[in-house]
């Protein structure tokens, strides 16, 4: 039983990784959750999840004759976390097409699969998480370029038959309620949450802990829990998701 979510935004700096782990931790109270750093070119998840020093990462799994995915899967904060490494050489050696099989294996064992997706739509491997996921969570900021890019993410997702689970206005500063309501009209899913800019999120990142572990009572953490409650993961056929990943078209090398 699994539903795969891509957590995506068209641009960087929206707090996508913070959002992925926050949603993951909140959902982990009810579901078996696996979080994957699907941004193999700009690994970030490992720093947020206290995995910066681990020996084996997804990159080691994605090379020919590489490690089994279990070796790069870590039980942390009630979730299974599969980080990427930061070595450019390892990234270049990794073969992204292997990601499909890896994710298919992970899907077999999880209720909810969260794919922290690259902050770009500019390459085949970057959009693969959006292509493969059942639904996409679009992380926005209350700026014109971020919303504009979020609209593009939505159109890419819908073009591949991937539904929109909803939007999160993240790192919100100032009064943007009215703007968020106006944005909501253009997005298919609901506005899942408005998350205020939070020093706690930066401190959590520095401490290598997800926001919900570091500052569970913060306003931002509360907002993320509300967002997760609105996601309402669907029971899917895990075999179906696994097949989809396995059969997806092979992406170009990086």
């Amino acid at each position: 039983m699994v539903e795969a979510f891509a957590v995506a935004s068209g641009k960087g700096g929206t707090g996508k990784t913070t959002s992925t782990l926050a949603l993951g931790m909140a959902l982990a109270e009810e579901y078996d959750v696996t979080v994957v750093d699907a941004d193999t070119g700009m690994a970030n998840l490992l720093f947020h999840a206290g995995l910066a020093d681990v020996e084996t990462t997804l990159h080691d799994v994605l090379v020919e004759g590489g490690a089994p995915v279990e070796a790069a899967t870590y039980e942390r904060f009630g979730m299974r976390v599969v980080p990427c490494g930061t070595s450019l050489a390892a990234f270049e050696a990794a073969e992204p097409e292997r990601l499909r099989a890896v994710v298919a294996d992970l899907a077999a064992d999880a209720d909810v699969l969260l794919l922290d997706s690259p902050a770009t739509l500019g390459s085949k491997s970057a959009i693969l998480p959006i292509v493969l996921a059942d639904r996409v969570v679009i992380v926005l900021q209350a700026t014109i370029p971020a919303v504009s890019d979020g609209l593009k993410v939505q159109e890419y997702a819908l073009s591949y038959g991937t539904d929109v689970a909803g939007t999160i206005f993240n790192r919100v500063r100032g009064d943007v309620e009215s703007a968020a309501e106006k944005a909501d009209r253009y997005f298919e899913g609901p506005l899942l949450a408005t998350v205020p800019e939070s020093e706690a999120a930066q401190q959590a990142r520095a401490a290598g802990r997800p926001l919900l572990a570091h500052a569970p009572d913060s306003e931002a953490a509360t907002a993320y829990r509300a967002a997760a409650a609105r996601l309402d993961p669907r029971d899917g056929d895990s075999g179906d998701v696994a097949d989809r990943f396995r059969s997806a078209v092979v992406p170009d090398p990086p």
């Binding site: 209350a142 014109i144 100032g174 009064d175 943007v176 009215s178 703007a179 944005a183 253009y186």
Partner: peptide, 10 residues
């Protein structure tokens, strides 16, 4: 600042 410019855009 408030979201005025974003609102106008939307």
């Amino acid at each position: 600042d408030d979201g005025g410019a974003l609102e106008a855009f939307l």
